[in-house]
Design a protein around this nucleic acid. Sequence first.
DNA 1: TGGGCGATTGGCT
DNA 2: GCCAATCGCCCAC
Length: 195
Amino acid sequence: MPGWPESLTGGVLDVAPRLLGAVLRHSTADGPVAVRITEVEAYDGPNDPGSHAFRGRTARNAVMFGPPGRLYVYFTYGMHFCANVVVGPEGTPSAVLLRAGEVVEGRELAERRRRTTRDLARGPARLCQALGIDLRHNGLDLADGTLTLGSRPADVSTGPRVGLRLAHDRPWRFWLTGDPTVSKYRPAKRRDPTP
DNA sequence: TGGGCGATTGGCT
DNA sequence: GCCAATCGCCCAC
């Protein structure tokens, strides 16, 4: 695909909305599942207290510091995986979290993995489960048709990122306006409820 | 070396 | 709306 991954080397706030409408396709021995991305969040590396890379490079976030166009997968809450597309020039640890999408291929397989027919890719961990993505896919190269970019979407909404305690004021979540597969906004739970 | 916590989800009140 | 599940990460001891 022309312009790929050069189109991922710009600023993360510019690239993130461009990933809306892109299709991520992952094949395993069980078959392929493809998801059309409808909701993302931008994480601006060292400038962003909400980013895993804010405190510098560690074993977990090393992929974020590598070249763009690879998948950064992390494990959280003891049971879930979330996936990001690494963007920006190599050495700049910016990434775009894939928060939600619409299953456009392999629906039956996605339903089997999710053990339900609803909300197949609505939420970052559900999206990974539907696609069959886990830590083994950390660093996966998305070139050669794994991630297919479309044209810049026309109607994009923005708002605060979900579940963050830090930097929750930055409106760095992007979604396709009105799309039914977009996840529900949940603010981070406060630890100190005293006024 | 230990413990608090998390870019979440699903089930129950 | 509330909360448990569940464990790797990371930093303060």
